[in-house]
Every structure is written in C-alpha cells, then in structure tokens.
Amino acid sequence: MSLDRTDVEKIAHLARLNIAEQDIQEYAENLSNILDLVDQMQAVDTQDITPMAHPMDAIQRLRLDEVTEGNQRDHLQTVAPAVEAGLFQVPKVIE
C-alpha cells in the first residue's frame, strides 16, 4: 500500500493537522512503510474470527442517575486559552 501526496493531504485535513509542504513527501513515505508493515495481516484468513475490541469480554457497568458534579466553571476555565462571559472563545464559526 503506497500513499501519495494527495492521500497525505486528505488525511492531514481529516485529522486537522497542518503539514508543511516540504514534509509531505516524507510523511507519504513513512506512512507507506507503516502500511506495508501492517499489510502482513492480510495474509491471514480471519473470516470466522470475532473482532476483539477489549482485552477481556467484560461488560459495561451502569452508573446511577445522580448529579454529582456542581458548578466548577472558574476552576476548569483557568487552563482555557480564551474565555469571555463564561464562554470558550473560538474564531467566528460561519455556518
């Protein structure tokens, strides 16, 4: 599996990563090498194997419906890059 510049640009956009123009080629090569590595998997017949998403077949525990968290806005917003009137600020979103 080999990725070209367009593939890298598309993936970088999906992942919202700015990649410098001069680095694209190297990413393309690195990613292609990784995909070559993982392609070993394709040789294995896994048709009847149930995918294993978690190490153990444990099941989800249910939480009681209780409000346990109060207002922590000031505390939690101390690490925010930009806040005004209690709202996180981002560049204007145009819909």
């Binding site: 409000v67 346990t68 968290e69 207002n71 922590q72 806005r73 939690l76 009137a85 209690g86 996180f88």
Partner: peptide, 19 residues
C-alpha cells in the same frame, strides 16, 4: 457519561464538568 446536571437554562458552562 458524567455526573453533571442536565437542567435547562443554567449560566454557560456551569453544568460542564471535567468529563
């Protein structure tokens, strides 16, 4: 998925916990 309240109409971000 968290213990924050779902009540409508609170001041912005006062019902948004760490999760």
């Amino acid at each position: 998925f968290s213990g924050a309240s779902t009540a409508f109409g609170a001041e912005p971000n006062t019902q948004a916990c760490a999760v």
